[in-house]
Design a protein around this nucleic acid. Structure first.
Lengths: 362, 362
DNA sequence: CATTGATATGAATCCTACG
DNA sequence: ACGTAGGATTCATATCAAT
């Protein structure tokens, strides 16, 4: 059995399933898996000008049938589910050749799909023969271990980085090319399917916190490890081929800096501690039996020791009472109620903020 | 058994599978299917013809909970495969809740995926709770009956309509709203998932010829029927609920006009008849033993009666000879060779075009 | 050094009618 | 059914050489 502390921020050379079986249960915060796609291509594809297109022709992508591929995926996905923490989540990337196998199997295993995310390629390889639509995207499945599981989603961070609009399920990102693409001694691409760092950046920023441990069971050239490191997360990788293990290890060592940008550290999504209104009474910020008003000074109600409000007709929580005054079923009372301090109306939310600042280290 | 001529351009009220079973084999050119999602858990275990997961341990079935939906989809997809012509193709649309079931089952049935096409919604409903990425797309699977099947793809039409660039697998199209959306007496939307006509337009334009028969086994409000009619294709629909049958029938009747735009009628993709170069000699357009040249007047070769070219070294077809001159294995000789007419060099392709015009009715 | 043009290349289920 | 010949087919971007 592997001790996590011994493998944190390393790449283990080995077979995915075999190696995963040595991991303890519920030890991983997030998984990014880029398995073989089982492309089923035959022969050579010529470009229009006559040169050969260099697609995926590696042994690791060869399977004898869907059945064999399904079983392989069933096995590694089952291990991923076991090693994932209850509040963890998993990303799996594929293309139309394999993603319907992956999605089906994951649903059978009880994984719960949060989103399927489309990586729309801004510069895809064209369809040289004009036989189909240019295949310009890949699909990622983002899932929890099961239907009921909670999970990390840095909503505010993603919204901020998307020009203050909700991030959507279609991401337009270029292919991994140029300097980012690792090359061998002959200047040829080291790996057939290296993913762009931009893609991993969005994956990690959206679904992990700084310090989380991210597993990549098909590490390849180590994009997950490099981006995790840069974003102040931890990683552990599994990779079968020695040359990729070496290249990825070098790559991670060379990550130029670890970010200290608070946005990248998910500061926007740090949950503030809950402060019951009774705490504000105990702290002397609000007084028992004092009156609360709406922002115009109307709708006066009396604050009870329990933190509930009495309008002479009923006794309700600050939220239910503001909802009642507004004729709604739900409302956030912290934004509705004010107290009188001298001649001014002061929002009770201001007292809550003050309380948090004063007692933040408790 | 239903006679196709009796149901052409009508909507049949009935259950999908039951009705499809009355259709003759190989009678449909194209299918567009927008099936319901109804995911019922805890159904009876019914396997898909034994092909799935033989040899996988018992954990498999323990996790199964989508069986009833799978079984339903297996049945209607199998009937679709039966009624589809050998050269037909099928489109199936779904979202992450069901599309992995659909894709998996289609692959199990032997359907061959040509593309998965993403309908990216330009105006999706936001995620109100901020709990996930905004689900801003749906997925369509475009498939032939089997791996070897040929199919209709109007490549040039799609390219033309896309600003003369290859059409890609991600389509950005707004939701169906406004006047296009059918309403009931109370002004509420008549159907929960009415698809935009623009989507069906691209589906039909890319994969059918005018006059083709398009089946929609879950017709709903009849978007497929309306767009098929407008684009001079035929349709047959199946729909369970009477109110939708009525609304869709009215809708088709009201289609304002049938297009006569040659682009929409796929004129760009009409295959031109093959003209062997010997025909041009017989027609007196080219002369035996005259010389052919490249576009600069160089590389002179002699035209033989057989239509082959002699460069003094070897005798080859116009294609092989142009390839030889270019140092390639393949080339289109029609674009390479010219003859002298007066002081001008004239492309032999021009003579081919003239020949086609002159003898087009043969 | 700046600009222009040629070349290289990316997870690809990449042809079809005729004899 | 199968082999073969005809002939149709590419977009965005990075790099590097040439001007």
């Amino acid at each position: 059995m592997i001790k996590i502390s011994n493998v944190k921020n390393t790449i283990i050379q080995g077979e995915t399933v075999e190696t995963l079986r040595q991991f303890p249960d519920k030890s991983i915060d997030c998984i990014f898996a880029d398995p073989p796609y089982f492309m089923q291509t035959e022969g050579t594809l010529l470009r229009t000008e006559g040169t050969a297109f260099q697609g995926v022709d590696d042994d690791w992508d060869k399977f004898s049938s869907y059945n064999e591929y399904d079983q392989f995926c069933f096995e590694w996905l089952k291990e991923c589910q076991r090693v994932l923490k209850d509040k963890g989540s998993i990303w799996v990337i594929g293309s139309f050749q394999n993603v319907y196998r992956l999605g089906y199997i994951m649903q059978e295993l009880g994984f719960w799909i949060l989103n399927d995310v489309i990586w729309e390629k801004s510069n895809p390889a064209p369809n040289f023969r004009g036989t189909r639509l240019t295949n310009a995207h890949e699909t990622m499945l983002w899932c929890t271990k099961n239907k009921k599981a909670s999970y990390t989603f840095n909503y505010q961070t993603m919204k901020f980085l998307n020009g203050n609009k909700q991030e959507r399920s279609v991401w337009n990102i270029p292919l991994c090319t140029g300097n980012e693409r690792l090359k061998d001694k002959n200047g040829k691409k080291l790996h057939a399917t290296q993913k762009p760092e931009k893609l991993l950046e969005k994956v990690i920023l959206s679904s992990t916190k700084p310090g989380d441990l991210i597993l990549d069971p098909f590490m390849g050239t180590g994009t997950t490890a490099a981006v995790a490191t840069q974003l102040a997360r931890n990683f552990v990788g599994i990779e079968r081929e020695e040359k990729y293990v070496k290249a990825a290890t070098e790559r991670v060592k060379a990550v130029p800096y670890v970010t200290n940008d608070p946005i990248m550290l998910a500061s926007l999504d740090v949950k503030k501690p809950r402060v019951p209104i009774e705490r504000l009474i105990e702290a002397g910020m609000l007084k028992e039996r004092e009156s609360l008003f709406d922002k115009f000074g109307g709708n006066g109600v009396v604050l009870k020791t329990t933190g509930c409000l009495d309008d002479g007709d009923s006794v309700l929580s600050i939220h239910k009472m503001s909802a009642k005054k507004l004729g709604k079923t739900n409302h956030n009372g912290w934004d509705y109620w004010f107290v009188k301090r001298g001649d001014d109306l002061v929002s009770i939310n201001e007292f809550r903020e003050n309380y948090r600042e004063q007692f933040e280290n408790e």
